[in-house]
Design a protein around this nucleic acid. Sequence first.
RNA 1: GCCUGGAUGGCGGAACUGGUAGACGCGUUGGACUCAAAAUCCAAUACUCGCAAGGGUGUGAGAGUUCGAUUCUCUCUCUAGGCACCA
Length: 828
Amino acid sequence: MVSEKYDPKGIEGKWQQLWAEQNVFKALEDSPKPKYFCLCMFPYPSGNIHMGHMRNYSIGDLISRYKRMRGFNVLQPMGWDSFGLPAENAAIQRNIHPRDWTLQNIAQMKVELKSMGIGYDWDREVTTCLPEYYRWEQLLFTKFLEKGLAYKKTGQVNWCPKCETVLANEQVQEGACWRCDSSVTVKELSQWYLKITAYAEPLLSDHGQLQKKWPQRVLDMQKHWIGESRGGKIQFQVDGSSEKIEVFTTRPDTLLGVTFVTIAAAHPLAEKLCKAPQSLEELEKIKVAVALRRPDEETTEKKGFFTGSYAIHPITGEKIPVWVGDFVVMEYGTGAVMAVPAHDQRDFEFATLYKLPIKQVIVPKGEKAKDTLKEAYTGSGELIQSGGFNGLDNEVAKETILKELEKKQCGVSTIQYRLRDWGVSRQRFWGAPIPIIYCESCGTVPVPEKDLPVELPMDITFLGKQGNPLEHHPTFSKTNCPKCQKPARRETDTMDTFVESSWYYARYTDPKCSTGPFAKSKADYWLPVDYYVGGVEHACMHLLYSRFFHKILRDWGYLSGDEPFTRLLTQGMVIKDGAKMSKSKGNVVTPSSILDRFGADTARLFSLFAAPPEKDLDWNEKGVEGCHRFLQRLWRLFYPHQSVLSEPRANEKEINFSEKCLVLRRKTHWMIQKMTEDIESEKFNVAISAAMELVNELYSALTDNDKFFFSQDGKWTLQEAMESLLLCLAPFAPHITEDLWHEMGHKTLMVLASWPHFRPELLAESKFTLVIQVNGKVRDRVEVSKDMSKEEIQKLVLGMEKLKPFIEGKALKQFVYVPERIANVVVV
RNA sequence: GCCUGGAUGGCGGAACUGGUAGACGCGUUGGACUCAAAAUCCAAUACUCGCAAGGGUGUGAGAGUUCGAUUCUCUCUCUAGGCACCA
């Protein structure tokens, strides 16, 4: 017997246990149903579940449960992105091994997740800090090396003095470390890189497959991040030397407007070209200034100097001066630009400052060159002062000129990307060791597969400074060369944690595989992920790296398909009092406190109701209470009628429904339709409101006449409404609905029930509310029959008393009638 | 500066392909129940003029298209996120 009071604590644990005992969330590959892989971005095990997690997983579980009810074989796994800095910080502060700290946190968070009643297949749990996971990542790294897609490069890297670690460009935000916010400095280090740039083109072009299924802004952000520029590389011979300066330009059409060449201070030829007096000192000054420049620094006046050397224009053969400019960066393109001051604003400013010639070569069609330019003209037009190219449309000229240069073998059309290779070395302990051995005779040798994994040692001391403790470990770095067996040194750098999260989704398809990262058959069955939910902050890093790995794994034959995630939902942050919840702001509300007070169903319902999923959610205690109140209302709708509701349903055909029942049944089927559509279109907050409307309507029916539900048709109507409500709310509030479902007499678990079908014929009405306007302003409304013709409607409307003051004495200009909606009388 | 979103009551948010603006929830007010309170139930709730009937105004601002615009077009303001000497 159901108790009078809704007691979430009493029912939630009970059903969670039953679901677990009956293994309802276990995903197997031998189902006749179509597969559905629903995935939420896995958490970093920081200690406790926070509101962002709760929102994320409520969305994922809603989709998973909904799809299961729609007849899909659903896989929803959970795991732990468990390498990372906080574990090392904890190790330093508390003298505990990062592994122990991490595993404790995982245990704690798992308890919290379970108390939320999320339907995970826990048999597929993946923990990235365990050797059974990272050994495969190490294997993949050796494949990268073998395929020439991993390489070592010495260069300037971002160095965080506090974390004592290298940061990827992507991890530097406004000159500060993305995690600890310290100012980032520059340091020379030898680093491992993965050649993501080799996949720039497919990463960009496969966006076509994601259109409409991923948020447009994520696609846009990735597109800018990859930053494709089409243009050409053009060589300028250095006058009196065999050296060539290669420039990259997107505007080969302006080639005849080149009046000088500007190179970066870090350009390899810079020193050689500095022939003018004092030019070497100038070079040094600019080098230092550029090196100290912060990424977020505002651009001031451009600085530069003439080197004393000249280059030969590839078309005209003219001698043009070579300058060094601080605005030319070595990292992009070729580190040298052809300066066209008339058609590039930066070149224009530079030329104006140093009084260099400005030559116009493009003018709007039919116009002539201006006497003086106030700024660069970057628009389109036709070529002038360009010899044989005169009169050409500049878009056409781009190709024509490049072709001419190709003939002369001093130019080629290319595509330049902004994307840079992915530096994966970290001078950190708590990460997957890079499986490399340095041998004095054999050089850089990958650890053979049979020796994997390279495991992290347990006996380790954390100082909190002096970089990676692995370097100070007595034996870790000491090993023998796999090739020649001589003593050799093991790499002590570990991998960026983004490497783990780049392929974890695939590991879920075969999480215990001990012969490889996963079996291809399993991956082919489950992948791609059908629905991926997580924060938009991962738009450019995690989501790009995962796409890169997926293409790599496809090309190496590990799996099939071009893209890892078919559909992406980026959920907003959880905000309180106008700011993101954070410890420093002291505005944190923990999910566990909400679970204790209101239960999991309320917490989940509120997470889904308070805002559309992609928008920020403002945490509001009163709103939580409102959701709790709704569930209580649902409970109380059931309780007084439990004897009626638990009776077996009669045959619908034998019931003669009163008008009142038909109205209620219409609302029931309207709700089913509305909720189905709204869930499909990710408007979860609106879906919930439809259920609330039906509950309100049922309450009203009861207030009118409390004996209503004892009549045959009333009872049937209530049973149908209640059953539909429970089924539709099941993905939002699974415990209370499961409980009431069983109270209604069902013997099987609701989790496994089918989603209800709405009956269109019950939604049909013979009447509708006609809105009557005069000159576009609403003046009245009237109930009319659907089978009235336009003429009949017009006659009815024009004869209406209420309209008289607005139309009398005026001429009817037009009568607009939109069937079943609106009638507009236009008078003048 | 550039790119992409967004702007609707006191608040969170609804609104089909251009067709009743404000669903649903919160809050507020009033009522019922109660000795009383809480809880619950019912009702009202954009602003404004009016005793009322009824009228006027209203979706960031301004224009435009239309019988009719929160929705489409243009200009602008504010705001969030992303990018930035990218050749």
